[in-house]
Design a binder for these strands. Structure first.
Lengths: 233, 233
DNA sequence: TAACGATTGATTGTATGCAACTTGTTGTTT
DNA sequence: AAACAACAAGTTGCATACAATCAATCGTTA
């Protein structure tokens, strides 16, 4: 252990952010702060009822998860992603996530497994009801978080979360059809099975499948929705 | 392009940090702020001749590159890495860096190539003189930065830099023998050749070789120096 | 003497005010 | 009319002051 006492720093999987950061993220994911738009520190401070100081600190934290970008002496704006960037993000995830998840093999506890099963069931019920479907994203995150935080590849953990760009994932889940949902659920069940079998290669393969199928779901979404508009959103 | 004008956010490869951040990094790399130690905002503010506000903002930026960790309501301390973590970091780099660098194939300009050659020569001269050898780290960073910032895998760029933990890399280079230096130089020349040949697989292979040889150099260093002490430093 | 609790000092979190810079506009010049 | 320069409004960067919280010490009690 690198630390000389048990105080651990905040991790993203714990959704253990500061109050202000998570509220800003909420505004971005909800589309209230649209991609590409500049965020005036004063405006946000007024809206959130705090001063500019915590706002500025939150911006620095949110840079790390790709939600905003800070341009010195110009300001901060919501990061926007075009279709090509999103494809690259998925391809990058397809490189590292299989590795990260496979490195959790043999390190998941029985508690972890029961949580995984529970979350899997929960997602199935959420997925069958279109009105609650947008909640899947957070449950899905929790599912993956269990694998990721148990990984031996600790140094890639925050990286892995960084690539699960909140706004991208949220939009994607919202567009899932029944078929997409059940396919995604199957991947999750198979991930559990592969982890129980302690087969790194199997875990890596399922993980890769999961991501690439997500990428293709995204591409389909692009075509369906806005053949002209490339940007998200 | 995702941005509606040409103002680009700071990137790490540009060593385009804020004044305060880079000075703090300097204190950490030099060992002046030892790993594991808490950093009092007031102390640093006094030492750097600024107020606590920019210090706190710099801390948030440095979390992203693994230099410090912020524990809410407790403070900020220098991140420390034990041998096992460092090995995991190298193994992670061995997964993603070959991909990132190979994705720069076909995107390097003639200017890039001449910079690469120049930097390679510069490193050779620095490497042959033990008194200037500690400067290699920054030149080496610049070399890799050219590949990395040209990569199509934009979203992994900051990630890649994050794994080149400054303090780890600095210590490693300082310990290089003449043989290690020339071996490293060979890798660089071969990277240039592979990129010129526009052979992704070749670039990826050389990159992987480079990283794993670095890992083993690190392991050797551990044994040589402090058979008892595991932590860096 | 050991364990528990209150108090004090130190440290972080936040608000506010001012200085520096950036940008858009207006007025001048060619 | 177009280009350029000076000005003004707005915005960020930083310093300082105060409030909230944490940790350690000291005193009390079983």
């Amino acid at each position: 252990m690198p630390l000389d006492d048990d105080a651990m720093p905040p991790q993203f999987g714990d959704s253990h952010w500061t109050e202000v950061s998570s509220r800003i993220l909420g505004l971005v994911v909800s589309g209230d702060l649209p991609p590409g738009s500049w965020i005036r520190e004063n405006d946000l401070a007024g809206r959130l009822g705090v001063s500019r100081t915590p706002i500025r600190e939150a911006f620095r934290e949110l840079v790390g998860v790709g939600v905003v970008e800070v341009v010195p002496r110009r300001g901060t704006r919501v990061r926007s992603y075009d279709a090509e960037e999103i494809e690259q993000i998925y391809r990058s995830r397809a490189v590292i996530e299989p590795y990260v998840m496979s490195e959790s093999v043999g390190r998941l506890t029985e508690d972890d497994f029961s949580s995984l099963s529970e979350l899997s069931e929960q997602m199935k019920s959420l997925g069958s009801d279109p009105t609650t479907r947008h909640h899947i994203a957070s449950v899905n995150n929790e599912f993956h978080a269990i694998f990721i935080r148990s990984s031996a590849a600790q140094s890639l953990i925050s990286t892995t979360y960084n690539l699960m760009i909140p706004i991208v994932v949220a939009k994607l889940f919202a567009s899932y059809s029944d078929n997409d949902v059940s396919s995604s659920m199957n991947h999750h069940d198979e991930l559990i099975a592969a982890a129980r079998a302690e087969d790194k290669e199997w875990v890596a393969a399922v993980s890769k499948t999961h991501i690439i199928s997500g990428l293709n779901r995204f591409k389909a979404m692009q075509i369906e929705q806005t053949p002209g508009h490339d940007d998200l959103q």
